[in-house]
Amino acid sequence: MSHIKHLLKTPRYGGLLALVLICLLLPLLLQNAYQFDVAIKVGISAVVVVGLNLLIGYTGQISLGHAGFFGLGAYSSAILTVNYEWSALAALLAGSVGVGLIAFVLARPILKLKGHYLAMATLGLGIIISIVIATEDWLTGGPDGMGVGPFMLFDYEIYGEKAWYWVVAALLVLSVWLALNIIDSPVGRALRAVHGSEVAAQVAGIDTTHYKVLVFVFSAVIASVMGSVFAHYSGFVTPTEAGFFHSIELVTMVVLGGMASTYGGILGALILVLLPQLLSGLEDLEMIIFGLILMLTMIFMPKGLLPTVTGRLKGGKA
């Protein structure tokens, strides 16, 4: 008991409890299917961002291609369930295993690269995936995308915004729990060392490449699973899900919310999904204001929103 109490007092696991509470209470505030839809979109992005944040925030590796993995997951589910009549769960698993393998094979040559070269390589990877999806229209429906059936779990159909809300909320809590475990494990300490200085970590006898590969694969698989979830929830997938802009959006969520801050990433996802909805009435001004908000936040809070705000509230410097 006292052990659990102690855990809850640590900011990390106390945060998990708060997240669970928010997920439980939020539906009371949501009034219609559209608001649930926005909440689900936030959730789906947030889960991907939790995984990506491990990579960017804790290992210091940039990926500008994670939407590619998301897209692969989405299209695996779409193609396998629609064209080959697989069950939704089997398709989701097959997609994530496939993406995991691809990520594993590519991880070593890609993660050998540093800084901007790594950014370029992951960006290229993502773009190649989206071009293939858009071009092979006999399989994928081409640029106009393809419809996807509902998610049948055995005989039960997950249908409607409310059902999906609970699925996504559960996945979000699960992913945060997994991430916190990784962060607090010996692996996690090694990861933070990698971000600090790779050479120093190597000198200390840590197999940095091994950990980087692990996190890269983990974050790719999470992206793939959420791609599958997205495909079934929205009932429609297009190549833009795998595209460059989606990748940039995901990275922006991480950086805006706070690198190496698991909850910060969730906040980033919340803001980036909500902002276009809030700005939608501004028509021609939307881009200007969106760009401005992005710039100003990063200029004045370079560590990201959540770390900066918590830092200020604690009275210290962020």
């Binding site: 990275v251 950086v255 690198m259 021609d284 881009m287 760009g291 401005l292 710039m295 370079p302």
Partner: peptide
């Protein structure tokens, strides 16, 4: 103003700037 920030942070700032400039020219 962000010269001490991390590489990714500056990348996001320039991406923000590019969106801002596109929006401005479009307007």
């Amino acid at each position: 103003p962000a010269r001490n920030a991390e590489v990714v942070t500056i990348i996001i700032i320039t991406i923000g700037a590019s969106i801002f400039l596109r929006g401005l020219v479009q307007l």
